[in-house]
Amino acid sequence: MDHPLPIPQFLHDGDFLSVLKAHGYEIAPRLAEAAAKFQQEMSDGGIATEGTTVLAVKYKDGVLVAGDRRATAGNLVMYERAEKLINIDERSILAIAGVPAVAFEMARVLEHSFKYYQRSQLQEMSTAGKVRSLSKLLKENLPLTLQGVGMVVPIFATYETADGKDSGGKVYFYDALGAQFEGVDYAASGSGSLAVRSVLHYLNTWGGKPLAKYNESEIVVAALRLLDTAADSDTATSGYNPKSNIFPTVRVVTKEGIHEIPESELGRMYRSEV
């Protein structure tokens, strides 16, 4: 006899993807769809967009995550107000560089996977588990990455408080094939990341004090200067755009959760510090 309720007959392990699968959703074809759309738009010379410079730096109270707002297609600037930081849960941010269509689909899957796990299992997923989930999604995307159409190279920043212990901010970065690495002090991704990483290395080593000792306003100013530096040599990265008053996105993840630095404050800092 068929069971009258759609109840999982197997042991419930909190895996959202298997629930989706039971409802006919497969992640790989969806990512392929997003990437195919991207490729089509590219060949039409149309509106396909790519991400640019994002960075995550540990500081005194947690992690700062920042991203510029420019999306480009080839040598064209497509959009100056792209959002590259996606809040995944109360204390985690995904910063994306690469094809937004694929990255946003990944972010949506991750967000619901973490929520689903927490609610069904009545405990939060460990940081290692979260990091691994993203890695699995990137591996699903491998065929597209190899075709060169749907590459996503994200950064995952989180503040670890699981099991009541406070282990502070964590930064993880990935390669396009899904390998994960933990950043000791910082991570950057996207076309402008080389400049950012070089300056971060300099600051951290010879800058007077290590980045981990910076307070919030110091680290925000540093992030604004870094994005400006990246924009200076990388056309696919925008700094502050005074003409249309567009600011980068800057968020901090602390014990209290995620806080977005408001544009008014960024504007003040730009005028006085950058």
Binding site: H12, V19, V109, K115, R119, S120
Partner: peptide, 14 residues
């Protein structure tokens, strides 16, 4: 509880 969670999350995702 699991039925409700499954239904809500598939809807919220889709």
């Amino acid at each position: 509880r699991l039925v409700a969670i499954d239904l809500a999350h598939t809807e919220g995702f889709n």
